[in-house]
């Protein structure tokens, strides 16, 4: 598996060879710097720490500047780890720069992002409930969840609504993974990765792109 950090640029369309118009998302993936290598001996697990998007050193405190200096680079806005299996040694060195070409051999990728925040959302929007009829005597509860339980439905446990009952609440701005985007194109010069379909989050938000091992 290879992983890169990046930024969602936005969506557009491209034609494939068959003349089909594909909806695609453009991701600026990399360049990422290897900030630190974690090994079983030192940290209990194997991982590669990647950093993306430079920051002014004056915007960070000394420990973070020092951490970046070990990799001979600037402090980064977005730092995440690529976890490796216990028996796999990392093949990179601290200070290495990974570009979008690491995906040259992958035809599918997963994208992890933070979804757009929807605020406090009702059950129709949040869970896809069907609500109540618009007319035929319905009053003041067109989008209501309906019954959330009775004393009997959870009798013996206090007669409460069941745990995990789908209700209204905060929706969005959480970590979401979309899987198996086919890679349509990549542009090494501009560090752009073009994947089919939509990925979580607004344009300009940070995303993690991982290759998928598919037979």
């Amino acid at each position: 598996m290879v992983m890169l950090l990046g930024k969602k640029v936005g969506m557009t369309q491209v034609y494939d060879q068959a003349g089909k118009l594909l909806p695609v998302t453009v991701i600026q993936a990399g360049p990422c710097t290897v900030m630190q290598l974690k090994t079983v001996d030192t940290d209990g697990y194997n991982a590669v720490q990647l950093g993306y998007d430079d920051l002014k050193p004056s915007h960070r405190n000394n420990p973070q500047i020092g951490h970046a200096r070990k990799a001979n680079t600037m402090p980064k806005k977005f730092v995440r780890e690529m976890r490796l299996p216990k028996d796999v040694e990392p093949e990179y060195k601290v200070g290495d720069c990974l570009t979008v070409s690491v995906f040259a051999e992958s035809s599918y990728v997963d994208v992890v992002g933070t979804s757009k925040g929807k605020g406090f959302a009702g059950v129709m929007k949040r869970h896809g409930f069907h609500g109540f009829p618009g007319s035929h005597g319905t009053e003041r509860k067109h989008r209501a969840p309906g019954s959330i339980g009775s004393f009997a439905s959870d009798a013996g446990h206090g007669g409460r609504p069941k745990r995990g009952k789908k209700m209204a609440g905060h929706m969005g701005s959480c970590r979401v993974t979309t899987k198996n985007h086919s890679v349509v194109a990549f542009d090494e010069q501009r560090n752009l990765l073009v994947v089919k379909g939509s990925v979580p989050g607004p344009a300009g938000s940070f995303v993690i792109v991982r290759s998928v091992n598919k037979a």
């Binding site: 360049p31 430079d54 680079t73 560090n191």
Partner: peptide, 12 residues
Amino acid sequence: MARKEKASNATK
């Protein structure tokens, strides 16, 4: 001075 890796200045 540390090496700079500015992602890109290109606009969206």
